[in-house]
Amino acid sequence: MFDDIRHYRDDEVPEVVKRVVNDSSLLSGIARNMFPSLPKFMHAALKPVIRYVIRKKFSKVATIRDCQEYVAQFMEGVIKNSTDGFTYEGFDKLDPKKGYLFISNHRDISLDPAFIDMCCHYNNLDTVKIAIGDNLLRMPVATDLMKLNKSFIVKRSLTSVKDKIKAFSELSAYIGAAIRENHNVWIAQREGRAKDGNDATEDAILKMFYMFGKKLGMSFPEYIKTLNIVPVSISYEFDPGDVMKARELYEKSQTGNYTKSEFEDIDSIVGGIKGYKGRVHVSAGEPLTGEYADASALSRAIDTFIYSHYKLFPSVLVAAGHDEKVSPEEKSKFMERINCAPEELRPYMMKMYGAPYFNHEKCVLAENGGDGAKAE
């Protein structure tokens, strides 16, 4: 069941691992990233050595859990080498025997669920099944690697309405079944990353969840409670993809559209992993148990949690023009990063970094009796 979207099973792992360690495109990519200054013919010469190293590292990987342990070790290195500290809260209040649907803001293609996985790992919770768009699966080896890491497929590239409805119905059933079987699931609050820094939940995603509940004859509020939805706010002090995002926004403003290069998403994944992130904070809420009448009411609750729990790092405060309590050193560090970017991209980067502050203020205003609103 769900064979066209599910991640791999344990019995499939050995054959997939064998395929991965022998994939020529993967070996070439690793050679290019590890030794960018070497000529191409040297990359080819290094492939047998890289294959040997990978085969040795994966020699004891026989199950999905083994793969997850390897990813956890890898993420420990990412945290150590590209952050100034990783903190988290709220996960200790969750029940390891239950399945939760984690819905977070979306800033980085691969790191958002990876950091949530680390929070689960540290708190003895089952790691998450990860929703990924089929736009990331252009290379067979990328598909294999992601499905080894408990990723399931969201069919975003379909064009006919009939096919989309069928795919969303299958996705809804898959997520619903996973939660009922006490598995954890992660999905971003929106399709695509929030490139302008405005984290806003798309109602369409929440309506998709309910498709399975409607088939079961349940009302929207009834079914949503069964999903154990946990809102999650992920905060990066520095976004390793800030320049790429700003360039896309700039080009759209100039020409009205933006066309991705063939492997731009893969480049974004690599850049996100390797790039400097400063401090990273992840905050998980309690499962949403309110009587949410419809998708709009539910999305407001998710947004409110994300906005109010976003960590207002100095980068956010400086960009928003509220740097009264920011040290001169922290301000200088952030502005140096901004000023290293092409001049035409800097205003977009400043808005990107400052947006969480203004969304946070909307929550404060709403709590004090003002009018709360979704991000503009």
Rank of each mutant, 00 (worst) to 15 (best):
K195Y: 09
K225G: 05
I224R: 01
G176C: 05
P221D: 04
A204S: 15
G192Y: 08
L206N: 07
Y174A: 08
G217A: 10
M218V: 00
K214T: 03
I224L: 07
R193T: 09
D203R: 14
A177W: 01
A177K: 15
G197S: 09
Q189N: 12
L227Q: 03
E191G: 05
N198A: 10
T201H: 09
N198D: 11
E191I: 13
A173Y: 00
R190M: 09
T201Y: 07
L216T: 06
N182Y: 03
K214S: 13
A204L: 08
Q189A: 13
A177V: 01
L216D: 12
L206F: 13
D203M: 12
V185M: 02
F220E: 02
A173Q: 12
F209V: 04
Q189H: 14
E191M: 05
L206Q: 07
E222K: 10
S219W: 02
R180L: 08
Y223W: 04
D196Q: 09
D196G: 11
P221S: 06
H183D: 14
E202I: 06
A178L: 02
K214D: 11
M208K: 10
L216I: 04
I205K: 11
G217K: 06
F220V: 05
N182W: 00
K215H: 11
A188R: 03
E191P: 01
E181A: 13
R190W: 10
A200I: 14
F220M: 04
A200V: 15
F220G: 05
T201F: 04
Q189C: 07
F220I: 07
Y210H: 15
I175R: 05
R190A: 15
E181T: 11
F220K: 04
G176P: 00
T201N: 09
I175E: 03
N198L: 07
D203C: 12
L227T: 02
D199A: 14
K195E: 08
A178P: 00
L227A: 09
F209L: 15
M218D: 09
I179K: 01
K195R: 14
A173L: 06
K207S: 13
F212Y: 15
E202Y: 13
A194P: 02
L227G: 05
G176A: 07
E181V: 00
A178E: 04
I187T: 13
T201V: 14
I205C: 03
A178F: 00
I224V: 13
T226Q: 12
A177D: 15
E181G: 04
R193M: 07
V185R: 01
K225A: 08
K215W: 01
R190P: 04
A177L: 05
H183I: 00
G176M: 02
H183R: 12
A194C: 12
Y223E: 08
I187Q: 05
D203I: 10
N184W: 00
I205V: 13
L216P: 06
N184Y: 02
A188C: 02
E202K: 15
A178K: 03
D203N: 14
E191D: 14
G192K: 08
A204G: 12
I175Y: 03
T201Q: 08
I187S: 06
G176I: 01
A188I: 01
N198P: 00
D203T: 14
I187R: 04
P221K: 05
T226H: 03
K207H: 11
K225I: 01
L206P: 05
N198E: 12
D203Q: 13
K214P: 02
Y174R: 09
G213A: 07
S219L: 03
E202A: 13
K225H: 05
R180N: 12
D203H: 11
H183S: 11
E202S: 12
A173M: 05
